[in-house]
Structure formats: structure tokens, C-alpha cells
Design a protein around this nucleic acid. Structure first.
Lengths: 228, 228
DNA sequence: CCAGCTCGTAACAAATATGTAATAAAGCCG
DNA sequence: CGGCTTTATTACATATTTGTTACGAGCTGG
């Protein structure tokens, strides 16, 4: 697991604890104590994920989340909210504000890293650096490389995500809608048919190594990744 | 798990949360913010399950449930009620109104999906993606594959749905009209005779493996799936 | 600001599925 | 055995779904 995580937390003690935990999880960290500070940092460089406290001085964490979601540049940053409230309604609001997940304080370091991993897997699988392998086909998210029987395979980013999703969800039909949700993201609007084109590009990229037959069409249902 | 679920919820935040959760559960979703809207959507196309909030502006969720139960066309839609009240009497009323289950807010995404799966398993097993097996004939909705004694069997989408329905409802005669409703869906205008053709195609597909004899004609009544 | 990618879409081609109608076969009842 | 009804089978035109290609817009890194 790699990736840079922005921690927005005003309480120094908790911030420190979180940063330690994240480092142990193999992440780089950037700290911010307020929404303003966070905004500045984000202007400078996009983090791979943001961990935002619900309660912050000045503008709240929810506000920051909304702001990030509103800006095209920061729209797709995965966000996890930290909340001290166990109140369900607040949780709901947090999710609605655009956060991908929420964690209720107090939480264990283990839980924190697990949640982060889960969110990254869903929102930005290319951050997770678990190497996935199937019959000689290897996808390495850490280096963003694909190889078939040792030979490097070139492909575009979308095809990479698509393949990565397939390889982590094989032996299962995925409708175009599901693929759109999972690979493209929740708030994206593209034609269903666009997937066909990327499937084509993926197959094309895999063709020299022969793995193109793993990407299978299931008529009337969608696509499936499976050994032929 | 597939299937289209109608979500009737006026609170946008909660509606959004539910839809996200359902999508993650592999369902398609249709949203309605009121009973009127829901009715319109249902007129247009029947959902596989309805998730209805107890408290709704105008006519209440209970009212909608009763209405659905009263109409032959919508009678058999599985219904889950969402209620914020933990009051036992209300729960009972909810159940009495015809709902198959109820969920008390606040609820976790996990619980929601679990309840849905449970209700579908009971009321509409053909929506579930559980593997169905009979004497060596295996239908796997998740991968969209059929095999007889380990050998893959190819067939078209309609034949697949037909077989899946048969296997989840065996040992029972289904009239052509019933099959049309269940397998084709309502709002579809096709001749009864069309079914014969698809039965033929299904038998043809099953023939090499010998399972074609499981698809039996019940003269004057319809078809039945059963061991010969 | 340019060059090179990547992306989404449209347009057309190909493949496959679907429904219907016509004809044959089978079952039922007297 | 007929006639009648119901089901099977076949062929075919139509629809639908998927594959493929090309192209312009948008980004990104220099």
C-alpha cells in the first residue's frame, strides 16, 4: 500500500496518532489543522485520499468535503470522515456530503488502516499495491505495470483500471452499469457503450500475450474475466 | 445478486445512502421521493423489490404498500419498509400492511443488504445470485454460466433466464402466462406460442447433456421442470 | 503553446437473439 | 378411427446487442 494521505485534524494528539498509524500502514502523510490549511495543501498537490475530521475550527469537515466534491480537480479524491458522534443521522449526513466512508472515534489503528484500504480499493484501486496475478498475467498497481509471462504489456490508464478491477473480481459477470460505477466512479456520466470501446482497447493490449481471451463477453449481461 | 430495486424515500441524504448501498450490493436502483412518483415508476416498469419509507409526504408508505398489495399486477412485489419508529405496534402495523420485512432506522448498509437478500431468497429466488443445482445441472447466475456434469452448456439470454426460473421453481407447472410474467416481465407483449419456441431452444441446448428431459410439457397447463 | 496521449462518442458492420407464422406432429375424446 | 385441440419444429424477417473504427476534444508534460 502506498499513496499520500492528507490528514485534517485540529487536535494535535489525535493527529499525531493518526499519522503514526498511517505511516505504519505504508502511507505518506500531509497534515493540516484546519480547513484553510488543508485547502492550501491541496492546491499545491493532490493527495490520494483525505482523512477529515467532522469537527474542525471554522469551516467544518463536512463543509470541506462538499467543497472538494464541488471542484472538478478535487472531485475524485477519496474521503473518509472522522466523527466523534455515533449519532446515525450525522453519519448519514457525512456520507451524503460526499465522503466515501466514515469512522467513529474512538477507533483502533487497525480499523483505520482497514477502512483506508477498503476505500482505496473501491475508489482508487491503482493506489493499492497488492500485486494481482492470474495464470502468468500480472498487474502491479504499485508500479502501474502489467506483464504477461514476464513480458511488459502497455495500456492506457482506463484499461489498466479495468483490468485491475477484472482481476480482483474474476469469474463474475459485470454489467456495463456496474463497471461504470466501479471502474469509472460514482458521479461520472458516460455512455454504456463507451465500455465496449475500452474493452476493445484492453483486449487489443492483451492480444500479443494471448490474454485477450480472458476478457469475455456475456451476451445480454455484460463482461466477465475468466480463464477461457 | 442482481435485480432492480425501487427506493421510496423523501429524505435525499438517506435516499442517496441507500442507493449507494444497493449499488454496492449489485442492484439496479430506481428512486422515488413520494408515493405519487413511485406509482408512476411502477406503472412504467415493475421493480423486483420495493424499499419504502414509513413516513412519506402525502400518502404514507403504509398506504403505498396497501395499494401495491391490492393491485394484482403489483401484488407480488416483495416489500421492505423503512421505519424510524422502534415502536412495536408500528412494526406490527408495517408487517400487517403487507410488507415482507421492516428495517428500523438507523440501520447499517450491511444490514440493509442482508435483509434484502433474505427477502429475495424467500420471495424471488430467481433474483438472487445463489448457485442452483439439480442432479448435476448447475446454473450460476453470478458468472452467468450453465454446466451439466461439469461440461459447459451454451444458451441465449432468454433460455438462461427460463432455465434459472425453472430451477428455482421446480416440480410445479407454470402456465405460459405465468412464465411470460416471471421470465419476460410485465409490459411485454408476446404471443403465448413464443414460449414454445424458447422451450424448444432450451431443450436443444440441454440435449447434449441429456437434461432436456427435465423440461416437461404438461398438456393443457404449461411446463414443468422436474426429474423425469 | 505545442505534441502526444487518452477519452468519449458516433457511425457502421457483424453477430446473435427474438418473435411470429406456417406446417408438422402428438395427444385426447367420442 | 377420425376430428379437434394442443404442442413441436422449422424457417425467416426483424430487433437487439456487441465489435470495430475513426475522429475531435481535453489533458499533460515539456
Amino acid at each position: 500500500m502506498s499513496g499520500t494521505i492528507l490528514v485534517v485534524e485540529d487536535e494535535p494528539a489525535i493527529q499525531e496518532l493518526i499519522v503514526m498509524t498511517l505511516k505504519r500502514g505504508g502511507h505518506e502523510t500531509i497534515r493540516a489543522g484546519s480547513v484553510e490549511e488543508a485547502s492550501k495543501l491541496i492546491d499545491h498537490a493532490l493527495p490520494d485520499l483525505a482523512l477529515i475530521d467532522w469537527m474542525l475550527p471554522g469551516a467544518s469537515g463536512v463543509e470541506l468535503t462538499r467543497r472538494l466534491r464541488g471542484n472538478p480537480r478535487t472531485q475524485s479524491i477519496p474521503i473518509i470522515m472522522l466523527t466523534a458522534r455515533s449519532d446515525e443521522d450525522d453519519k448519514l449526513l457525512g456520507l451524503d456530503s460526499g465522503a466515501d466512508d466514515y469512522i467513529t472515534k474512538p477507533f483502533s489503528p487497525k480499523e483505520l488502516n482497514a477502512r483506508i484500504k477498503a476505500v482505496l480499493r473501491r475508489r482508487a484501486p491503482e493506489i493499492t499495491d497488492d500485486i494481482v496475478e492470474t495464470n502468468g498475467l500480472v498487474v502491479d498497481p504499485a508500479t502501474h505495470r502489467v506483464s504477461g509471462n514476464g513480458v511488459t504489456i502497455e495500456m492506457g490508464p482506463t484499461e489498466f483500471r479495468l483490468l485491475h478491477f477484472f482481476m480482483t473480481h474474476r469469474e463474475r459477470v459485470h454489467s456495463r452499469t456496474q463497471l461504470l460505477d466501479q471502474v469509472w466512479g460514482d458521479h461520472v456520466f458516460v455512455e454504456d457503450r463507451t465500455i465496449d470501446v475500452h474493452i476493445r482497447r484492453l483486449r487489443q493490449a492483451l492480444e500479443p500475450s494471448g490474454y485477450d481471451t480472458y476478457v469475455q463477453t456475456v451476451r445480454g449481461a455484460g463482461y466477465r474475466f475468466s480463464k477461457p
